[in-house]
């Protein structure tokens, strides 16, 4: 994909910002221009959290994504808020374990996977975010696979080294999910 204008959105605590950072680093390792912009302030505390990630071959103008061509959503309010803003031809990845609604648009492609339940079943609690990133990667190839693995290694801090394998497993689950 030539340029990724990704919005990730959900509740605070679901790892939205972290997932965005992994996507951004993957772009960086591909030698692309990238930006990462979080929502911030009181709304972060238990409320909705979202972040804009741009990956492009050209310098990035506004880092605030208004019309995404890729969307990862982890709660219903975010789906309601952002699905309508997607550009035609965009790709949405929806955590269907948390959202029972479908995207009512024929001009975007939506993938539904129960990422939160999948994470629970595989002992990967809290890593639904990575499952969704894995799925987005599979459907859009927004970065190279090599850079994605490198990015997750970069983003998991050394003091949480034991989490690295689990994050990778979650990514793989998302990449391999059929449906």
């Amino acid at each position: 994909m030539d340029h990724l204008h990704l919005i990730l959105a959900g509740f605070g605590g679901q790892g939205i910002l972290f997932a965005g950072k992994v996507a951004a680093y993957a772009g960086l390792f591909d030698q692309k221009e990238i930006s990462w912009l979080p929502s911030y302030g009181p709304e972060m505390r238990g409320g909705t959290a979202n972040c804009s990630v741009c990956i492009s071959n050209r310098p990035i103008g506004s880092p605030l994504v208004v019309n995404p061509n890729a969307l990862i959503v982890m709660n219903r309010p975010s789906l309601d808020k952002f699905a309508g803003a997607m550009v035609p031809g965009g790709v949405a990845v929806v955590d269907s374990a948390l959202i029972d609604k479908k995207i009512d648009r024929a001009d975007v492609t939506a993938y539904y996977l129960p990422a939160t339940s999948m994470a629970e079943e595989h002992g990967l609690r809290g890593l639904a975010n990575m499952i969704l990133i894995g799925k987005l990667f599979r459907e859009t190839s927004f970065c190279t696979e090599e850079s994605l693995w490198k990015a997750i290694e970069k983003c998991v801090p050394a003091r949480k080294a034991e989490m690295l394998g689990l994050n990778k497993e979650a990514l793989r689950l998302g990449m391999e999910y059929q449906g």
Binding site: L28, S35, L37, P38, P63
Partner: peptide, 10 residues
């Protein structure tokens, strides 16, 4: 501004 302060870039 808040955008530049909060955003990450390489």
């Amino acid at each position: 501004d808040g955008m530049l302060g909060q955003m990450m870039e390489p």
